[in-house]
Structure formats: structure tokens, C-alpha cells
């Protein structure tokens, strides 16, 4: 145990926890916006998988992770359009359509991987913004520098998105429109807000963030494999509920989940957790997230029109 409480190990553990939480945070923030507009997207995990595969294929073929990330974003936009068309325009049952999208994307990403890549090959990511961006001066702060200011660019993007989204959702007209579309679409409509347009943009934003989350996960792992996400998208959906549909709360949940995971991992690798209890210890992130919510005071109501398609009279 003493080995763990050395500053170097601790700061490395926290840095890795933040990195682990970043893909979850990106996906969960995107889902937050979509849900606030009234659309439940259970297909996040599938979108992450397709985007991760797209980013992987492009990074492998072009040698450029930047292009891969762009492709992941593009896949996110396309999947967002499809999701919004099914859920908003057609008004399909969102619980089923989300699971359908997840299953189809799970299969398709595996299929395309087998067809176009076959043998797994790691992508080359040895330098550049997708390895680490050192924030000048701040990265020299002992320990804190390692924890916060030597992360890859997508981690910063995820963290910066939290205040940005908080501002957009609570202090801009668009944010108010999203809120109205999710709470009382009929009233919003009567005030001249296009519920369809608001929901489309919110869903596409959410899906694009899921795409970025997929790319972020790919960069973290350096390689694609079938079902790379292992359900991370579903955890992201759960974190939206944890955060009470607020970006700051979602961020808290994602970081809590990532940090717990990374502490457990470090304890396992240091042998602090005996091998026989290794599996039980792996439950800790999930248990702690539930317990945290159980004993947290504030409780938030979900958007009233969440999951309800809207059709003008």
C-alpha cells in the first residue's frame, strides 16, 4: 500500500483516470444535449464503435490520426442524421430504435473490420497532439502537471466542453430551445421554435460527440478490435442520469468512474489487491458510482418529454 502513496504513482494514476474518463465524458455530454431536447439515444455504443473503426481504418491507411478523428466526426454526423430521422421525423419508439442501431453498428463495425483490415495492426501514434499536449508552464507544476497538463488533445476537448456546454445550455437561446423541446414541445412549437430542428441538431451533436468518443477510445487503445467499446456507450448513457442532465454532474460521474477504474487497476498491478479478489475489485467503479448517487443529496427530474416523439397538431 505504501508503494501506492508515492506522489509519482498517485499522479500517474490520476492522470490515467482522467484519460480513461474522457471517452465516457465526451459521449455522455453529447447524450446529455440529446436527452435534454427529448430524444433518448441508446445507440451511443454502436456509434462509438463505427466511429472508432472509421478512425482506425483511416489512421491505418493514411498514417494520420488527425484524418481519422475527422472521419470519426463525420461518421458521428451521419449516424446522428440517421438516428434523428428514425426518432424525430418518423417518430419511432426510441428504446427499440436505439438498441437496433446499437446491434446493427456492432455487427457492421465487426464485419467491416474483418473485411477491410483482417489482421489487427496497431496505429502509429508516437508524437503529436494525440499523444500529449503539454500546456506551457502549467505542465511544470510538480505532479499536478502530469495529472492535468500532459494529456492528449481530446481529453482537453472533453474537459473544456463541460463549461462550454453549461453556458450554451443555460445561457443561450439555443439552450433554452433545447430545454423547451425536451420539457414541453407543444408550448415551444406554439412560440415558434422548430422542435424538429432543435431535436435534429441536438441529436446530431450528441452523435458527433459519440463519434469523437469512439476516436478517443481508439487513440487510448491504439488498435481496433471487435466490440472495442465493451459497453462504454451504455455506461455513458447511465452517467447522463448520474449527472442529472447537467454537464458538470455528468463530468463528475465520468471522472469518478475513470478514477475509480484507474485506482483499482493500479492496485491490481501493484499486487495490493490479491489475485483471488481481482474480479470482485473490478466491480468497484460501478458500485461507487451507484453509492455516490445513493448518498448524494440533489436529485433531478428527467426532461418531461424524454422519449416522446413530437408531432404538431
Amino acid at each position: 500500500m505504501s508503494h501506492f502513496f508515492t506522489a509519482a504513482v498517485l499522479s500517474a494514476t490520476i492522470a490515467s483516470g482522467i484519460a480513461l474518463g474522457a471517452p465516457l465524458l465526451l459521449a455522455a455530454l453529447g447524450e446529455t444535449v440529446g436527452q435534454r431536447s427529448g430524444v433518448l439515444n441508446l445507440g451511443v455504443d454502436g456509434i462509438m464503435l463505427l466511429a472508432a473503426f472509421g478512425a482506425y481504418l483511416v489512421a491505418l491507411r493514411t498514417g494520420s490520426i488527425g484524418w481519422g478523428v475527422l472521419v470519426a466526426l463525420a461518421i458521428g454526423v451521419v449516424m446522428g442524421l440517421i438516428t434523428a430521422f428514425i426518432n424525430v421525423t418518423i417518430g419511432a419508439e426510441q428504446g427499440i430504435s436505439g438498441i437496433g442501431i446499437y446491434i446493427a453498428a456492432l455487427g457492421l463495425s465487426g464485419l467491416l473490420f474483418e473485411r477491410y483490415v483482417g489482421t489487427p495492426t496497431p496505429i502509429t501514434n508516437s508524437r503529436g497532439p494525440f499523444v500529449a499536449v503539454h500546456i506551457p508552464l502549467l505542465d511544470r507544476i510538480p505532479y499536478l502537471g502530469t495529472m492535468l497538463f500532459k494529456q492528449n488533445i481530446l481529453v482537453y476537448a472533453a474537459l473544456l466542453l463541460v463549461p462550454a456546454l453549461t453556458y450554451v445550455l443555460h445561457h443561450t437561446t439555443y439552450g433554452m430551445n433545447v430545454h423547451a423541446a425536451g420539457e414541453n414541445p407543444a408550448a415551444a412549437d406554439s412560440l415558434g421554435v422548430s422542435v424538429t430542428r432543435v431535436r435534429y441538431t441536438a441529436v446530431i451533436f450528441g452523435s458527433t460527440m459519440a463519434g469523437l468518443a469512439g476516436a478517443s477510445l481508439l487513440i487510448l487503445d491504439g488498435i481496433f478490435q471487435e466490440n472495442l467499446t465493451q459497453g462504454a456507450g451504455f455506461i455513458a448513457v447511465a452517467l447522463v442520469y448520474f449527472g442529472g442532465w447537467r454537464p458538470a454532474g455528468v463530468a463528475l460521474g465520468a471522472l469518478l468512474y475513470g478514477l475509480t477504474g484507474s485506482v483499482i487497476l493500479t492496485w491490481k498491478t501493484l499486487g495490493i489487491i490479491p489475485l483471488s479478489l481481482s474480479d470482485l475489485a473490478a466491480t468497484a467503479p460501478a458500485v461507487i458510482v451507484v453509492l455516490a448517487l445513493l448518498f448524494l443529496v440533489g436529485r433531478y427530474r428527467q426532461p418531461a418529454a424524454l422519449g416522446k416523439p413530437y408531432r404538431r397538431q
Binding site: V9, A12, T13, S16, L20, L217, L220, D221, G222, I223, Q225, E226, N227, L228, T229, Q230, A232, G261, S262, L265, T266, K268, T269, L270, G271, L275, S278, D279, A282
Partner: peptide, 25 residues
């Protein structure tokens, strides 16, 4: 010699994280 198990045969991310953890140690 550190020895640990991820709990999954297929979770690439967990394997990668464990490897990173070893490297940082």
C-alpha cells in the same frame, strides 16, 4: 514481477490500461 488479471478475455481497453499502469510503475 507484477501479475494481474483484467477479468475479460476480450476487453482491449482494460488490457491497454493495465499495460500503461505497469509502464508508469
Amino acid at each position: 514481477v507484477h501479475l494481474s488479471f483484467t477479468g475479460s478475455f476480450s476487453d482491449v481497453s482494460l488490457m491497454a490500461s493495465a499495460a500503461k499502469s505497469y509502464v508508469s510503475e
